[in-house]
Each structure stands twice: as C-alpha cells, then as structure tokens.
Amino acid sequence: MLNVGKIEEGFVLDHIKAGQSLDIYHKLNLDKLDCTVAIIKNAKSNKMGKKDLLKVECDVEMLDLDVLGFIDHSITVNVIKGGEIIEKKSLKLPKQITNVIKCKNPRCITSIEQELPHIFVLTDEKSETYRCKYCEEKAVKRWDI
C-alpha cells in the first residue's frame, strides 16, 4: 500500500478495480464531505496488477456499505481508529438499493413521476441481477451508474 500519510480515524478502501476510484468517490458522496480524502490511482498490486485506493478521514459510520457492496463487493474495507486498522469489513450484495442507480426503462413509472425513489431489488444472487422494484427492468451493468 502506498503511504499517503496516516489517518487517525476513517477508512481505507483497498482493492478497488483500477480506474474506478473516482466513481466510488462520487457514489459515496465523498465530494460533499469536508474531510481529507486521498484518491490513489493505478497503484501496484501483487493480486490485481493495478488497483485504486481511497483513504478517507471521517467518522466510519458515514460509510454506506450497501452502496459499496452494490458497486463492487470484492473491495476491502479497512476501518481505522487511533491510526491503526481495527477491523476489516467484508461486503455483501445488498438486498435492495435506493437512489443509487436510476431505472432507464422509458416506460417505467419513475420516468414520469420524479419524486419516486429509484429502488432496485436483488432478484438473483448468483448472477448478481438487480431489477427495478416497479417495472422489473434489469439494472444495466453496475458500473453504468
């Protein structure tokens, strides 16, 4: 892991697929937080060849694990307290996600009623398929956010 200064409290997201850290930064709403964030792109990795990392100094409760699990459940979440890793959290595919992705079916009720939450439900764990709660349209690939 590259050393970009130690953080006292926060989390380090490791093993992010190379090139995806900025998307995750936005999806976790880190751009809206007034805290230290280090985005490391294309770091060398024995396991992955290349990987991205995110170091965030903030209250660990602020991390939405469901969003992260939906985006990529192979990411490692290191929880830091007092400058040390105190926990490694594993990610699961969330059963349901709300307002993370939008339904792209032009015939879906969400296309005309703007205030409706965009809810996707995990319908097949094996194939990691999510479908719109309303029209059952399959979510397009999870990176197409």
């Binding site: 079916n105 015939r107 879906c108 009720i109 969400t110 296309s111 005309i112 009623e113 409706l116 719109c132 709660k133 309303y134 029209c135 059952e136 349209e137």
Partner: peptide, 10 residues
C-alpha cells in the same frame, strides 16, 4: 390500468 410500468405497484 396505467400505460407506465409499475404504476399499480406505486
């Protein structure tokens, strides 16, 4: 009955 899919679910 509604032309938009999922309207009855809403």
């Amino acid at each position: 009955r509604h032309p938009k899919e999922g309207a009855p679910m809403v």
